[in-house]
């Protein structure tokens, strides 16, 4: 489903973020990418989202070379990927409901679909009570659950969670990971970047370890090896 073919990324100032990374992820997998800050995890995610382009090599998603996708077709591709960030990145002037609904609106869903799906998804992340709250009225864990609801509402093929638990306490971290696991159990591919040892070990799924822009380990039921 996802294929990184000998991908390198360096910046004009000489920093090398990725160095000859080759990696494939199959449909329905749950892959954790671990590594210190600056190991290249976020760069990997950015290339996958088309936010940045590789200096060398190619990144493909469902056999489509992401770097060759035209700007005009990019939104279409992104609607097939749900994304969750460490800093939540919700729209501050929209309620929880509207934040989730926005993802459906851009995908061209009808009002009826939105009215039926949004409350359902918010219920799934246990936020029915706070549907009409603005982001500033929600706690960190709640914000991340809204972000997850937004990421899954369009039934994407892939969920990318970039350090989703970085700003959360252990209880919220546990909840978020359980939700991600549930999503994966329903058949959605999940890519999780983290440097939380507990999270990785509790999952017991495939772990890719990165260091200085290179993959140094790839274990099918791996452990946090740094």
């Amino acid at each position: 489903m996802i294929y990184f073919d000998n991908v390198s990324k360096s910046y004009p100032d000489g920093t090398v973020a990725l160095n000859g990374v080759t990696l494939s992820v199959k449909q329905g997998e749950f892959v954790s990418i671990v590594g210190h800050s600056g190991a290249g995890k976020t760069t990997l995610v950015k290339l996958l989202l088309g936010e940045d382009s590789a200096t060398d090599g190619s990144v493909s998603f469902d056999s489509v070379d992401i770097q060759k996708v035209k700007a005009h077709d990019m939104p279409e591709l992104r609607r097939r990927i749900g994304i969750i960030f460490q800093d939540f990145r919700l729209l501050p002037n929209k309620t929880a409901y509207e934040n989730v609904a926005f993802a459906m609106e851009v995908a061209g869903k009808t009002e009826e679909e939105i009215a039926s799906d949004v409350p359902h998804v918010l219920e799934l992340v246990d936020l029915s009570q706070k549907m009409w709250n603005f982001p500033r009225q929600l706690s960190g864990g709640e914000l991340q659950r809204v972000a997850i609801a937004r990421a899954i509402v369009n039934h994407p093929d892939l969920i990318i969670a970039d350090e989703p638990t970085g700003n959360l306490d252990p209880i919220n971290t546990y909840e978020i990971v359980q939700i991600l696991k549930k999503i994966n159990d329903m058949g959605t591919t999940v890519i999780l970047t983290t440097h939380n040892k507990g999270v990785v070990e509790a999952l017991g799924k495939r772990v890719i370890t990165m260091d200085h822009g290179k993959i140094i380990r790839d274990d099918s039921t791996g452990k946090y090896a740094l």
Partner: peptide, 13 residues
């Protein structure tokens, strides 16, 4: 930042 988020969620220009 909001514009950036909207783009990542898949909003067209």
């Amino acid at each position: 930042d909001e514009i950036g988020v909207m783009r990542l969620v898949g909003g067209s220009k």
